[in-house]
Amino acid sequence: MTQWAQSLIRISRFEVEGLQKRLAEVAARRASAEMRLACLDAEREVETERARSDGEAALLLNAFLDGWTVRRAAAEHALGEVTAEEQGARDALTSAFEELKKFEHVSELTRLAELAERAKRETAAFDEIALRRRAAG
C-alpha cells in the first residue's frame, strides 16, 4: 500500500472515530431529553392524583398545569433540536464511513494493480530467459 493511501485511510478512520464519539454524545443527550419528558409526565400524574385527594392541591392544580405545559413544550423543543442534531451526526458519520471505504477500495485496487504489474514483469522476464535458452541450445 502506498504512503498516500495509508495517510488518507488513517485520516478517514480518525474522522469516523470522532464522528462516532459525537454521535454517542448526541444520543446520550437525546436520551436525557426523553427522560426529562418522562419525568415531567410523571410529575403531572402525581400532582393530578394529589389534587383528587387534597382540596388545597386542587386549587393550585391549574397553575401547576400551566407551568407544566410551558416546561413540557420547552422540553419537547429541546428534544426536537437534539433529534435533528442526531440525524445530522448520523448523516455525517455515514458520509465519512463511505469516504473511508472508497479510500480503502482505491488502495486495494492500487495494490492489486501493482501485483499484476509485478507478475507481468516476472512473466516477461521468464519468457525472455526461455527464448534465450532456446536460441542458445
Rank of each mutant, 00 (worst) to 15 (best):
Ile9Glu: 00
Gly55Arg: 11
Ala116Leu: 12
Ala31Gly: 13
Leu59Met: 10
Ser12Ile: 00
Asp54Glu: 12
Ala24Val: 13
Arg118Leu: 07
Thr69Ser: 09
Asp41His: 15
Leu115Gly: 04
Gly137Gln: 14
Glu117Ser: 09
Gly18Ile: 06
Trp68Gly: 00
Arg52Asp: 13
Phe97Glu: 03
Arg133Glu: 14
Arg30Pro: 02
Glu17Asp: 13
Glu128Gln: 14
Arg132His: 07
Gln6Ser: 15
Ser32Glu: 11
Phe64Cys: 02
Leu115Asn: 12
His77Asp: 15
Arg36Val: 06
Asp91Glu: 12
Phe14Thr: 09
Arg44Asp: 03
Asp41Glu: 12
Asp54Ser: 04
Glu47Leu: 13
Ala58Thr: 06
Glu15Pro: 03
Glu49Val: 06
Arg22Ala: 08
Glu122Gln: 13
Arg13Ser: 06
Gln87Val: 06
Glu85Pro: 03
Ala116Asn: 13
Arg111Phe: 12
Glu98Cys: 08
Glu76Phe: 03
Arg44Gly: 03
Ala73Asn: 05
Val26Glu: 02
Ser32Tyr: 04
Ala75Thr: 03
Ala57Tyr: 00
Thr48Arg: 06
Leu61Trp: 03
Ala27Cys: 15
Thr123Leu: 12
Met1Gln: 03
Ala42Leu: 07
Glu34Ser: 07
Ala57Asp: 02
Glu117Thr: 08
Glu49Thr: 11
Glu104Ile: 00
Glu98Ala: 13
His105Pro: 00
Lys120Phe: 10
Val106Glu: 00
Gln6Gly: 08
Ala96His: 05
Asp91Thr: 08
Glu56Ile: 10
Leu23Ala: 08
Ser95Lys: 08
Thr69Val: 09
Leu93Ser: 04
Thr69Asn: 14
Ala116Cys: 12
Ala78Cys: 07
Ile11His: 10
